[in-house]
């Protein structure tokens, strides 16, 4: 502790040197606040923007404790761009990396590189494939909501409003993402439990216009569809539009996921029955907290590599 410290740093620095046994790392960390890189998916998506803003607000409240470098890619499927960003973060010697991977498998090699460079990695939002992680002997804690359980809650609520045997369609996100797969699984389980018939599962690629097209095709092909389950709210907006265009307003129920702002008026007037809130702003914060604990060598409290954040059902009825 030869370097000059400001008063703010004195206490943690002294404390860490008092408790220190092999604490060169933590002493340095206390002197220079650790640099945490937050690498997001599409910052164009409201969900990730909320997440990033939550992280920034948290950083401002705890400005002495860590530095934050936030980065995102243009669109959610641009895996190559995200890998390039992680490589830059490795080159700029960050202490920790909190990442929402664009692809649950393709990002693993570069995360391995980061871990090998001594960077503490925490996985948020979209869980890295455990099998691929194992094959690289990597342990990356996942902080995030249980998408499958969240989708199940939404589906369960929908099921209560339908009659057994009713036909339903699922509009999935980008099929290669774990989030899309888990939400679809959750929807399927809920529909099976409520004895609904799933007549079609197709991808709307997380977006409004493609979802509208797919929903319109489902409604033409299966005129007796009673509900559409969309993997996110943007696609639910597209589904609502298709229902209206088919002249079936009020006859086909629509549910979504994410609880974005634009869905609020639709929840209110019943065009969307329910959605799930998974507190995007808290996720990056939980991720950063876990990353800081790892940097300090503390226990993250993860159970079998997972720290679960809450998901709540949001319905139109007050």
């Amino acid at each position: 502790m030869k370097r000059p410290c400001t008063g703010r740093w004195l206490v943690p620095a002294l404390l860490s040197s008092l408790f220190a046994l092999g604490p060169i790392d933590s002493a340095l960390a206390a002197a220079n606040p650790p640099k945490v890189a937050l690498v997001m998916k599409s910052l164009a998506n409201e969900f990730f923007l909320t997440m990033e803003n939550g992280a920034k607000a948290y950083q401002q409240q705890h400005s002495g404790e860590f530095e934050l470098v936030a980065n995102g890619i243009k669109n959610e499927t641009d895996t190559a761009a995200q890998i390039a960003i992680v490589e830059q973060m490795i080159a700029s010697h960050v202490d920790a990396l909190v990442i929402a991977p664009a692809d649950s498998k393709a990002l693993v090699p570069v995360i391995k590189k980061a871990a090998d460079a001594g960077i503490k990695v925490v996985n948020i939002d979209n869980r890295l494939d455990p099998a691929v992680l194992d094959s690289k002997q990597l342990q990356v804690p996942f902080v995030g909501p249980d998408n499958q359980a969240g989708a199940f809650k939404v589906g369960e609520y929908l099921g209560q409003q339908l009659n057994a045997g009713d036909a339903v369609g699922i509009i999935e996100g980008v099929p290669t993402t774990t989030n899309a797969q888990q939400r679809t699984t959750g929807f399927r389980q809920a529909m099976d439990a409520a004895k609904m018939t799933i007549v079609s599962v197709q991808s709307g690629n997380w977006e409004m216009a493609p979802a509208q097209q797919v929903a319109a095709a489902m409604l033409s092909e299966y005129p007796d569809i009673k509900a559409l389950l969309a993997g996110n709210d943007n696609m639910a907006l597209g589904a609502v539009s298709a229902v209206r265009a088919a002249g079936k307003a009020g006859q086909v129920k629509v549910v979504g996921y994410d609880n974005i702002q634009a869905i609020a008026p639709m929840l209110k007037d019943g065009r969307v029955l329910a959605t799930a809130e998974q507190y995007a702003d808290r996720q990056a914060v939980y991720g950063i907290e876990a990353a800081l604990k790892l940097v300090k060598g503390q226990d993250t409290g993860a159970q079998s590599g997972v720290i679960v954040t809450p998901v709540d059902l949001v319905t139109g009825k007050p």
């Binding site: 977006e207 509208q212 943007n234 907006l237 609502v240 539009s241």
Partner: peptide, 15 residues
């Protein structure tokens, strides 16, 4: 035309 159909403006529209 898209807005009239979807009732919402998505900054990701038309990607």
């Amino acid at each position: 035309f898209q807005l009239s159909r979807l009732e919402a403006a998505d900054p990701n529209a038309g990607a």
